[in-house]
Design a binder for these strands. Structure first.
Lengths: 179, 179
DNA sequence: GCTTAGTATACTTGATTTGTAGAGTTTATA
DNA sequence: TATAAACTCTACAAATCAAGTATACTAAGC
């Protein structure tokens, strides 16, 4: 094994031996990109400052330690998908469009990172056939990954911004998923 | 949104408008790399041909449509982690080391792709702190992603090669996860 | 009209995935 | 014991992607 799926610069555990067999072992991982993480942080921030009028990108960027220009793209994306609304010019800024209990983590992540499914052939929102697959009905990988997709979607599509707000204060949560 | 996590060359849904606002929309996704997919396909193949003696890399590569030299690396990796065993020289090849019900999808994927967790801070097998995170105990993202990690691990660590074999013939499965 | 603040798009950089290439090692057997 | 069959090991290369920068534009207030 060398590294996982995405991550990149995330957390790296680098371990180097300077023996003749110099070997670099490092772990990276992902699934949740930084972009998506920033998006969620931004949404939580905006939710917490809901009744203070529009929030400036600049403010959000500095308070949450998100690169300003990168954040611009993210907020724009969330705006274009109807999650946020914005106001231009002086006194402008960003605010939530929908109510916090209508904004689901699943839809945010789909918007920012794409489908939740680990493989395209089990995606409900963006299905596409795997070409490796000879027969989809007897593909064991597909069956397992479908379980995974459903489990992920079940959590993320049933967790709202409201839930996240509770978590960030409680630090804990009592989930109520559909089984 | 542009693309998800990994995927790359996987399946691409490309849609191009040649208007003045030429726009290319494409979806890619992942989590399960091709490498991991190949590994699972190889394991299933080896399981199905268990009592025919060692299987040649060449045979496996052609039958499962996996690039030969790429497959070599994967099999070697699986061998070094104790999942497979090999025999060199004439009459050699690869075969399963453990029994099919001891080989779990979770450990195969961890070996090939790395930790299952969507973010490092919720990984049980390869924990590492997120530096974005001010306070881990009140990080809502962490709480949600922990649920996701547990759900994924619960499925993958409780699905064995034996289960996959059943699926690939039945095309269906009655899971029996720990709740 | 000038400043504030968001909008839009293109580009850059470094890392990762997905392979390829080639030389080396072990084993069977003729 | 030489030879061919197979696996082993390491390095390299191309394509893709995540993450971030740069630059120019548009709209709203004052």
């Amino acid at each position: 094994m060398v590294s996982r799926v995405a991550s990149k610069t995330e957390e790296k555990k680098t371990e180097i031996n300077f023996d003749k067999s110099t070997r670099v072992v490092y772990f990276c991982f992902h699934m949740l990109t930084k972009k998506a993480k920033y998006a969620l942080l931004a949404l939580i921030y905006l939710a917490k400052h809901q009744n203070e009028g529009p929030v400036l990108i600049e403010q959000l960027a500095t308070e949450e330690n998100i690169p300003r220009k990168f954040l611009e793209q993210i907020l724009l994306d969330l705006k274009n998908s109807g999650i946020l609304q914005s106001k231009k010019g002086k006194g402008g800024g960003y605010s939530l469009q929908a109510s916090t209990d209508k904004i689901m983590v699943g839809s945010v992540l789909r918007q920012i990172d794409g489908p939740l499914a680990p493989v395209p052939c089990v995606s409900k929102t963006a299905y596409s056939k795997c070409k490796e697959c000879k027969d989809e009905t007897t593909c064991a990988i597909r069956v397992v990954m479908k379980e995974v997709r459903d489990a992920i979607a079940n959590i993320l599509d049933n967790t709202s911004l409201t839930d996240m707000l509770k978590m960030s204060t409680d630090g804990k949560k009592v989930p109520d998923y559909v089984i």
